[in-house]
Write a protein that binds this DNA or RNA. Structure first.
Lengths: 200, 200, 200, 200
DNA sequence: TATGAATGAGATTTCATTCAT
DNA sequence: AATGAATGAAATCTCATTCAT
């Protein structure tokens, strides 16, 4: 990579990281472009060389951060429970993500209920997601290795992710209707039910 | 109600209705207080006599509009299928809401994934919701009349509402991962599973 | 006039005067809205309550300032030569205007060659020009009192004003092709020719 | 001319042509250097190797485009009426220019009232105008061939050009005080008067 | 010569909120 | 209670110009 190219990469990353810090710290509405560039140490015009506006950088961050949550959970699964069943593995991942979000409420607030962007929402995939750092791929691998087979696995995953993202948000942020640790058993039951329905 | 009182009520309603029209038409961020008061035909200062700020009126609208969706669905149920089982009734309500949102994507966009505010989110209930126009009450009535009994009915409803709101949003708005009519059977299955898990 | 109304008038005038000072001092392009409001002592938003943008206030100023040049010249004529012939009066006015512009090159530069806006250009007459402070009216009065009668007096005035404005500009600003005092006799001759052509 | 030299000429011309297209299409203020270089297919920095700034290229264009109008009119005269009188020839040129500008209002708008730059305004003549492609030269030739002789021919031309440029602009652009075909007879009369005054 | 990424001052504009009437 | 002129901080975004490559 040429010096110019690597410099551009650095600027892009710096803006993304800074924006993320500020979004989680102060919220989207209260974070200004001025805040971002000032903290990132680049000129204001530079921001507009890389991103269309505040919502563009927000969308790119939601995609990459939610994606990262899945990747991290999967990597932890490989390390901790490399040989467990599909269902156990899936629940491990869900729980890992819920725990991460409980630990990091600012991130949860930023992602709101858009956890699913990390897996679906092809719209924003002009962000060059590295091929093998893609949760969809890992999910397929898990399915392949599973003894139990499932029909419509994509919709199955979609239902689980939307449920966990949405219910997890309300529970973690507002303890409404109960806190997350009380909710977990119910979520596990529902996921079990979904898997059973889809198992062939 | 005195004439002054009813006049105030009129202004309040006019502001709410106008704000809703603009929010669904142009989106929250692009709607300004000026837009609202101009279209409502009141002075700018008047807005602040009734609402704290734009987010205050937005929250009140989300609560009332999402609540209305449930009420409407319930009333339709009473009319169309007054004697059906609890599970059939619940699915009737879910489908009615999904159909309403499919018909009215601007409303869906406004509610985003906050459908659950119509049932939960006591936070914003300073809006005096008329006692018996409350879905929670209707839900309890349905449970009472049901032959099958369920444990933790509040959490059961919570799970269903979050799932339907969240998955419905993605499906109706982006047909991702499939359109809403294709998704419905899966949702029905999951709801069936949830009810079974909770049935005593 | 209510206190509010007179306050509005004051603001409007203050902005116009300040803008004119800055336009003639620094030029249009180098004058910013910030400059204007700061010097006028009003808030930035206030500017936009009165004018659409910088070009709006510029146009209103060209209209009023060029108009004023004619009015001043006419008033001077009434004072100095109340009983002269139409042609002498017209030349007195032309010379008075040329002298004013020679004295005030900043004004000339601002008006560029748009001197005629003071008489024509109905487009900008939403600026409520006071009825009897209108050069067109004075011109008609002069025509009425004249022994010689002219056909198409409007076009006659138009030709004279465009010629004087345009040639005067080049001559006063650049002494190209000669300075204004050398040009005057030629202009006088041309005007004489125009009047003769139009005299009935 | 070396290859390097001709390459430079090409870039220079490309920038000029592109700038002219954009100036007439979008106006001076709304055309940016970025617009110009992008459409011309050169890098931003390159612009500054050829021109000082936007106003530099604008001035060079006004000079060359207004000059071209005169040249074209003169060439047409040679072709159509090679043996007419001086006065007829001059009017032919004036009418040809007015017709060209009526056909091409974007050009008129760009030249504004600076038509005279094509003849006067030595200021910008670092643009190497080819010696014999200069209207001043042609004008002198016409004078020499004329039976009637005129005093101060430079000022005579100046007065005519300023009048035609200024009055023509208002008439063609705004039909104020009348449209250009109605104005022509009056202009012809005034020019006739000017020539008579200057004839020896 | 030519490039185009980076700059950053500053231009324009918006809009929630206040407060005198 | 109602008004709406005024505010002014702050938001977004532009764009001429530079300079390292």
């Amino acid at each position: 990579m040429s010096k110019v190219q690597s410099n551009k990469q650095k600027k892009n990353d710096s803006l993304l990281n800074t924006a993320f810090d500020l979004f989680t710290e102060k919220g989207l509405n209260k974070t200004t472009i001025s805040d971002i560039v000032e903290k990132a140490g680049v000129a204001k015009g530079t921001f507009y060389l890389y991103f269309k506006d505040k919502y563009d950088i927000r969308n790119k961050l939601i995609s990459s951060k939610s994606s990262q949550l899945f990747i991290d959970a999967y990597n932890s699964l490989l390390e901790q429970k490399p040989n467990c069943s599909f269902e156990d593995g899936l629940w491990y991942i869900v729980e890992h993500i819920l725990d991460s979000l409980t630990e990091n409420k600012a991130l949860l607030s930023f992602l709101h209920k858009d956890l699913s962007w990390g897996v679906f929402k092809k719209a924003f995939e002009d962000t060059p997601v590295v091929e093998d750092e893609n949760f969809a791929t890992f999910y397929l691998k898990m399915l392949n290795q599973s003894d139990v087979k499932y029909r419509d696995p994509e919709i199955m995953l979609f239902l689980i992710v939307e449920l966990v993202g949405s219910a997890g948000y309300s529970s973690i942020m507002f303890s409404d209707p109960c806190n997350i640790s009380d909710l977990k058993p119910y979520l596990k039951d529902v996921i079990h039910g979904i898997l059973q329905t889809h198992s062939v």
